[in-house]
């Protein structure tokens, strides 16, 4: 039970951040390595604000999202926009975000040092917010903490919000048009710059939110994003890279299979296998790439189409 609850929270975090990768990839064709640092920034915003203002960590989730979203916008304006205008290829775009990631990684470490030096009793290289969570219910002897319903609620809210935004608002529809055919969108008078900017904001915000959710269960440190980047990419790729909802699904699949799969395996073959937990997303990702390159999103669509459900 404990395992399932933990898995749910981690999966929610991975799913949110993976959706962020997908949004940025869909609109600007950039595989964003900086998502590692974006996620870490989510952790640190929550931790830093908690240290300064106190109260419940959940108050600061929204700030984590907004701040990381603005970092995303800054990355777009300084680096990504220039490269897209120059028509850089996919690998160059990817490399440039790697450079950004290293810069952010250095800055986050400096930030951690500043927290350590200015706030007595803080431990920015090893903090655990799990311990200050509130118990909300009990199921079969296992205490359910607030992080479980809250993280699920955030994912549901994001799904509803994004769906409404993308299908019911004019700008959301313009955004989808730009993703499908940028040239045509420009001809129709869509401000594609604004679309890319929004995509980077949303991508960053989702990463920050994912980081905030993960901070409620995972030990925080400047390295946390570096560890999580592969599951994040895995979630996004398994989801098909061209569908935000596919990547939310993919994130959940990766998170659940990583957490629950390793638990089942450890019962079955022995606890030594626990150390290989990070291999699971790698395997799923490689299998997905080699055998279902179009991803879960496309598979789900095919299934729905077969059942006669229209998009």
């Amino acid at each position: 039970m404990e395992v399932i609850l933990t898995a749910l929270v981690i999966s929610a975090g991975i799913a949110l951040a993976a959706a962020g990768i997908t949004i940025i990839y869909m609109s600007t064709e950039t595989f964003n390595f900086a998502h590692a640092s974006f996620t870490t920034i989510g952790f640190f915003v929550v931790y830093n604000m908690l240290l300064v203002f106190g109260g419940s960590p959940y108050y600061y989730f929204i700030f984590a999202a907004i701040f990381t979203g603005l970092v995303g916008v800054a990355v777009y304006l300084t680096v990504n926009r220039w490269l897209i205008k120059r028509g850089a290829d996919m690998v160059t775009l990817m490399m440039s975000t790697l450079g950004v990631d290293l810069i952010l990684f250095g800055l986050i470490n400096q930030w951690a040092d500043i927290i350590r030096d200015t706030i007595p009793g803080s431990s920015p290289r090893n903090f655990l917010l799990r311990t200050i969570d509130y118990p909300v219910a009990e199921i079969g002897g296992t205490t359910v903490y607030a992080r479980v319903p809250i993280s699920i609620a955030i994912v549901i809210l994001i799904i509803i919000g994004l769906h409404t935004f993308l299908t019911r608002t004019k700008f959301g529809i313009a955004m989808r048009t730009t993703i499908e055919n940028p040239t045509l969108a420009k001809i129709m008078g869509v401000n594609t710059e604004m679309v890319y900017l929004t995509a980077w904001f949303l991508g960053g915000a989702l990463a920050g939110l994912g980081g905030a959710v993960l901070s409620m269960i995972e030990t925080g440190s400047p390295q946390v994003g570096v560890r999580y980047i592969v599951p994040l990419f895995a979630g996004s790729i398994v989801g098909g890279l061209y569908s935000v909802f596919g990547s939310l699904l993919g994130g959940f699949l990766i998170g659940l299979s990583q957490q629950i799969g390793i638990y089942v395996l450890s019962l079955w073959v022995g606890t030594f296998i626990n150390a290989y937990k990070p291999v699971i997303p790698l395997v799923i990702m490689v299998v997905a790439l080699l055998f279902f390159p179009e991803g879960l999103g496309a598979l789900a669509e095919k299934y729905l189409a077969r059942r006669g459900v229209k998009k």
């Binding site: 440039s96 790697l98 990631d101 810069i103 800055l107 470490n109 400096q110 040092d113």
Partner: peptide, 11 residues
């Protein structure tokens, strides 16, 4: 940390 930042900047 400056080392990371500089390598990142170079890239």
């Amino acid at each position: 940390w400056l080392e990371y930042i500089l390598i990142g900047l170079i890239i």
